Simulated assay, not measured.
Amino acid sequence: MKAWQIFTHSVRQVFGNLTDALRISGLLYIVQMMIVVAMGVTSGETMQANPAKMLLIVVVALVFSLWIAVAWHRFVLKGEGGTSLLPPFHGNEILRYLGRSLLIGLVVVAVGAVAGMLMMPLGVMLAGPLAGAMIASLFIMVPVFMVMLRLSIPLPAIAMGQNIGFNEGWKATHGETGVFFGLALLLAVFSILLGVPEALFRPDSIPALLWTLTTGWVQMMVGVSILTTLYGHYIEKRRLV
């Protein structure tokens, strides 16, 4: 099953190059999380009490996350390495990556809103509030991930200073709906499973914070690697090994 191959290839891409993954993303991710925690976002009151502070957190998270994403794409696809704990800052590519990501985000939000209106009431009605919410979340995430993944295929090209439109990425994956459904389902289940152990910890405890930070890094790196794998396979015609 190609969806499983893409998913496992992407996971191996991270953990098979763990030293490089930590070198490229570790310092930036830790600093980003330190800023978030220092500003009290985990208290759940930041957005209401200080919108300006929340805006700053969002900007920091965006810049650092895109910095990591562009550096990781370039490492995997171009072999751009180095020994520094701070990867090169490709400003133009990061800005273009951000612009394209915002456009994708608008589409994804619309798809998620429609799926949510359809699935959430149905899930609660069939399985009760808790189980229904989890089931509905799965059925919401799958179409959202399907659309997001197909639209995001040009992003690695942008990271490398190239230009590929949405249409080219969509055409390259024509006839692969089943693959993207399977991949979206795997990614959704993966995300839900990573979140389950968090319920075992007290919300404001150190173990809960450590788990959230660790799983956040794993989700970020696997997600970026999936986009890298999709671009490499469908655009550059690389084999899935």
Rank of each mutant, 00 (worst) to 15 (best):
I94A: 06
I94Q: 07
L95E: 14
L95P: 13
L95G: 15
L95W: 15
R96P: 08
R96W: 10
Y97P: 13
Y97W: 15
Y97I: 09
L98T: 12
L98D: 09
L98K: 09
R100P: 02
S101V: 08
S101L: 11
L102D: 10
L102G: 06
L102F: 15
L103Y: 12
I104H: 07
I104P: 06
G105Q: 02
G105F: 00
L106W: 11
V108R: 06
V108Y: 09
V108M: 09
V108S: 13
A110H: 07
A110E: 05
V111W: 01
V114T: 02
A115W: 01
A115N: 03
G116W: 04
M117D: 12
M117P: 09
L118K: 09
M119V: 06
M119N: 12
M119P: 03
L122E: 00
L122D: 00
L122V: 00
G123P: 01
G123Y: 02
V124T: 00
V124K: 00
V124R: 00
M125R: 03
L126T: 13
L126M: 15
L126W: 10
A127S: 15
A127I: 07
P129A: 14
L130S: 12
L130Q: 10
G132T: 06
G132Q: 06
G132I: 04
A136H: 09
S137E: 06
L138C: 13
F139P: 07
F139H: 14
I140W: 08
I140S: 09
V142I: 14
P143E: 07
P143F: 02
P143R: 04
P143G: 08
P143K: 04
V144C: 02
V144W: 00
M146I: 11
M146N: 10
M146Q: 13
M146R: 15
V147I: 13
V147W: 07
M148W: 06
M148H: 04
M148T: 04
